[in-house]
Amino acid sequence: MTVAHEIIHFHGTPDDTVSLTYDARLLRRKKLITDQGVPFLVDLAQTTSVTGHDAFLLTDGRKIAVIAADEPLMRVTGDLTRLAWHIGNRHAPCAISDDGLFVQREKVMRSMLEQLGATVEDVTAPFTPEGGAYGHGRTMGHDHSHSHA
């Protein structure tokens, strides 16, 4: 099986793609299957959060681009500034758009948001929340030390 020991920042035409949910995009060692059905092993030196601008560089030179997969989310509308503060206070990942705030489906979060006056709608979409305190990666401290090509 081909192995990926490295993640590269990538904007070209990939050899294949792999669609991963937000939670699945945090990994260190895991067997994945590309969208064309080709298995490969990710074996990184440390746990890393990958994004839609990243690709796995396989030992045979192929580049497998990461795509944010559709997943169950909640679209939150209402007083967005106030609601965003409460979501952030819970350290929950959140995507911000002109259409509202998007968070992963979770019944306790839904209940809190509805009690705060939010309108909450179930949607299925790719989830690409805002980065951590310094604008990239997860709040856990992804240091962005992988290669750029």
Rank of each mutant, 00 (worst) to 15 (best):
R29W: 05
M112K: 01
H9A: 12
T34A: 03
H148K: 15
Q115Y: 11
A92K: 13
H53S: 10
E71C: 06
F56K: 00
D23A: 11
D16N: 08
L26F: 15
E114D: 06
V18N: 02
F40W: 05
F127E: 00
M74Y: 09
P129Y: 08
M74P: 03
T81R: 12
M74G: 04
P129V: 06
C94V: 14
G12C: 02
H9F: 14
A68S: 07
R138A: 10
M109T: 07
V108H: 14
A125W: 06
H148C: 04
L44G: 03
T47H: 11
H146I: 06
V120E: 01
R105T: 15
A24C: 09
I33R: 09
G117A: 03
D99E: 13
G61K: 05
I8L: 11
T119A: 11
L26K: 12
V50I: 04
G132T: 15
F56Y: 05
H5M: 08
D99F: 04
L41W: 05
L57G: 04
Y134V: 15
H5D: 05
A92G: 09
S111E: 13
G117T: 02
H11M: 12
A84E: 12
S145D: 14
T48P: 02
R29I: 10
T139E: 09
L58F: 03
L26Y: 15
G131F: 07
I64L: 00
G12Y: 00
I64G: 03
Y134T: 12
G141R: 02
R82G: 02
V108F: 13
F40G: 04
D43E: 09
T2E: 06
H5A: 09
G131L: 06
D60N: 06
M112Q: 06
F40H: 00
T77M: 00
P126E: 05
E6T: 12
A149H: 15
P129W: 08
L101F: 05
M112W: 09
K107D: 14
D143F: 13
P14F: 04
G117L: 04
Y134W: 12
I67M: 10
H144Q: 15
L101T: 01
L57T: 05
R75K: 08
T51H: 09
G135E: 10
Y134E: 14
D60R: 02
K30E: 06
D122G: 00
P93L: 10
G78T: 05
L80R: 09
L57P: 07
C94M: 14
R29H: 12
A149S: 14
P72E: 09
T2D: 05
D143R: 13
L32P: 01
D98I: 00
I87K: 00
A69E: 02
I87T: 05
D79W: 02
T13F: 07
E121Q: 10
I33N: 00
T128E: 15
E114H: 08
M140Y: 10
D23E: 14
D54T: 01
D23I: 11
K107Y: 11
M140S: 13
S147A: 15
